[in-house]
């Protein structure tokens, strides 16, 4: 007896493409994301990673979800962010630095020129001939650090320093299921 082919093709939902990046961040949000532990096996049943420190792909392609860690402290951060916005249907600000500038923004009440001079010019113990790095390949620092929503439209914010792994999980499972992500008490943290 032969088995008949199913009358209708069975539906295999396309895997969502996800890209992640750390701009002016510490990769702590990415580390917290990895703290979802073995749930990452369930996650990759539903998503495929595009540009991310996890894949080492250098340029972002067309994606469903872009997760941005870190704020904007130099011109390269702005370029990468705009590229993500252009290529991601849903863009998420992940963590304190992407949301309000965070730790890097603590330099915002200081003069950038004076900071560079203090660090590379006049600090004690500098070797002779030390100067502010000026290689043309280095992206120029911005005068002030900015959160990402000041430069591109952001669809969702996932707060925390870092957001707990369970917050990543709740957020992504809500988003993948087509629900508005809702963290609720215990997962919503600014610290």
């Amino acid at each position: 007896m032969t088995t008949l082919a199913p009358l209708y093709p069975t539906h295999q939902p396309r895997k969502l493409k996800v890209a992640t990046v750390s701009l002016a961040g510490c990769f702590g949000c990415h580390m917290s994301f990895l703290d979802i532990d073995e749930r990452i096996l369930e996650l990759i049943e539903h998503v495929e990673f595009d540009r991310s420190p996890l894949t080492d792909i250098k340029h972002v392609g067309h994606c469903d979800i872009g997760l941005i860690e870190g704020g904007l402290c130099n011109s390269e951060n702005v370029e990468v962010l705009r590229d993500f916005r252009k290529h991601c249907k849903t863009l998420v600000a992940v963590g304190a630095c992407a949301i309000n500038g965070g730790l890097p923004a603590q330099r915002n009440h200081l003069d950038l020129g004076e900071i560079l001079q203090d660090v590379y010019g006049s600090r004690t113990g500098m070797s002779a001939g030390s100067a502010i790095p000026n290689d043309p390949e280095l992206p120029l620092p911005l005068n002030k650090v900015h959160p990402i929503h000041e430069v591109v439209h952001v669809d969702y914010f996932l707060p925390g320093c870092p957001p707990p792994a369970d917050a990543f999980w709740r957020f992504l499972t809500d988003l993948m299921a087509g629900r508005t992500p809702h963290l609720g008490h215990g997962l919503m943290h600014y610290d």
Binding site: G102, Q106, P147, F157
Partner: peptide, 27 residues
């Protein structure tokens, strides 16, 4: 309001009120 460096974090009325209001970002 850089909560990660604030000793009041977790005991702060502004922060707790914003959690309760579902404030995810500064807008």
């Amino acid at each position: 309001h850089f909560c990660p460096s604030c000793e009041k974090s977790g005991n702060c009325l502004l922060q707790a009120t914003a959690y309760e209001a579902g404030m995810e970002g500064p807008h």
